[in-house]
Nucleic acid binder design. Structure first.
Lengths: 215, 215
DNA sequence: GACATTTTGGACAAGCCCGTCCAAAAAACT
DNA sequence: AGTTTTTTGGACGGGCTTGTCCAAAATGTC
C-alpha cells in the first residue's frame, strides 16, 4: 500500500523544517505574485526544495494556499494581542506613551510582511475564497477593536481621556495612525522608522486634541 | 495590404459603442478576477462580443488592461475634483455641512465601482506594473490632499477651524472618514447609505472636536 | 552497516489560455 | 443595390502549469 502522505494539521511525520520552509517561501511568492500568478516551481525554487516535495507535504496548490493563510493570520493575531499588552495603562506622558505604542503597533502588525500579505490577500482573493477569511473577518478586527477600546476606556476612567464611545475612539485611533501611511501601505513600500514615528506623533496629537480631558 | 486596426487613442473608426462596452466589461472582470485570473473569453462573454473583436480593438491583453486602468483613473480623478468643488466654503452648520460633503466624497469616489477597482488593482498589480500607476501615484492623492487642504485652510481663515497644518488635517479628515468602513472596503462589501451617513457623522464630529475653533 | 523514510529530478499527460488566421456573415455607408 | 468595414465563430499552434509517476539518491534511525 502506498503510504499516502496525509497533510494533517499535525503533519505526517516528515521533516518539520522543510514544511515551514515551504510555507514561508509560499507566503513570499503568493504575496508577490498573487494566487493566480504563482506557480509551484517558483515556490520550490524559493524554498530550495523539489516540486514533488511540496506536493508530498501539502497535496495541492489550494491546500497550500489555505495553509499559508492560516499560518499568517495566526501569527498576525498573536502579534496584535502581544502588542496590545504593551498599551500604556499608567501613562506618564500621554502623548509620548501613546505615540510609541502606536509605533509598535504599526511596526509589529501592520507594516511587516504578514500585515502586507494579509491586506493584499484579503483584497484580491477575498471574494473568491470567502470562507478563507470568514474566520479572520469575525475574529480579527472586531476583537482588536474591543480590546483597544477597553484600554482606552480605562484611560478615560483614570481621567486621562473624555470618551463617549470607546469603540468608536478605538477605530478612529487606528484610522489616524494610518492617515499618513495609506499610500505607502497601498503601494507596498516600506516605511522609514523616522517617518513612522512622525506619523504616529501626528496621529496621537490629533487624537488627544479630540479626546484628551479638557483641563 | 491588410488593414491593421491600430489601437490608437482616438480609435480607428470602429464602433465606439463596442469599444466602451469592451472596456466596461473588462473592468468588471479584471476587478473580480485580477489580471492573472482573467481570460479573454470571460470578457468577451460579459461584453457580448466575440473574442476576436477584442483583439481587433485592443490588440493585447496587457494593452487592454492598460486601457482599462487609464479609463478608470481618469474617471476617478474627474469624480474627485467634481466632488471637491462642492466643499462647503460658507458653512451654515459646520458639522452637518462637512458631514454631507463627506458622504458625497465616499459615495462618488471611494465606495463606487471605480474606487474599489483602483484600490484592488493598485494593491495587487502595483509592483508588477509600476509605470501603470506612477501617474496616479504622482498626480492622484497628493493633488487631492492639497486641494482639500486649501479648502480647509479657507475654513480656518474664516474662523471656523484652528489648523496648524492644513495638509495633515486633510489627510486625517480622509482617514477618519474611512475609520468605520475599513473592513467593508477591504472586503469589497457595499455599504448601506445609513451606515455611510452615520460613519461620516462620527468622523466629522471627531474632526471638529480636534480642529473646531475653541469658543 | 542495514533499514525505513524522504527527497529529488525528470518525464509525462491533460488542460488552459493567448494570440493568430480565415472565410463567412452582418452592419454601415454611399 | 453595391461596396467597404466590422464582427463573428471556429480551428489551431505554441507555451505554460498542474498534478502524477517512478526510480535513484540522500537522509535519518537503530
Amino acid at each position: 500500500m502506498p503510504t499516502v502522505t496525509v497533510p494533517d494539521i499535525a503533519g505526517p511525520r516528515g521533516h518539520l523544517e522543510k514544511r515551514v520552509s515551504i510555507i514561508d517561501a509560499a507566503a513570499c511568492v503568493f504575496c508577490r505574485e498573487g494566487f493566480g500568478g504563482t506557480n509551484i516551481d517558483m515556490i520550490a525554487a524559493q524554498a530550495n526544495v523539489s516540486r514533488q516535495t511540496i506536493y508530498n507535504h501539502h497535496g495541492d496548490k489550494e491546500k497550500l494556499f489555505r495553509a499559508v493563510v492560516r499560518d499568517v493570520t495566526e501569527r498576525i493575531n498573536a502579534g496584535i494581542f502581544e502588542t496590545l499588552a504593551t498599551f500604556p495603562d499608567k501613562p506618564v506622558d500621554l502623548q509620548a506613551d501613546l505615540s510609541t505604542f502606536a509605533v509598535r503597533l504599526m511596526r509589529n502588525c501592520i507594516c511587516n510582511r504578514d500585515g502586507k500579505f494579509l491586506r493584499k490577500l484579503i483584497q484580491s482573493e477575498g471574494d473568491r475564497y470567502p470562507d478563507l477569511f470568514a474566520d479572520w473577518r469575525d475574529n480579527g478586527p472586531a476583537r482588536v477593536w474591543s480590546a483597544l477600546a477597553a484600554r482606552l476606556a480605562r484611560l478615560a476612567l483614570a481621567g486621562h481621556l473624555e470618551l463617549d464611545d470607546p469603540d468608536l475612539a478605538a477605530r478612529q485611533f487606528l484610522a489616524l495612525i494610518n492617515a499618513d501611511l495609506q499610500i505607502a501601505l497601498l503601494l507596498g513600500d516600506d516605511i522609514a522608522p523616522e517617518e513612522l514615528a512622525r506619523s504616529a506623533d501626528n496621529a496621537v496629537r490629533t487624537f488627544l486634541r479630540a479626546f484628551a480631558r479638557r483641563s
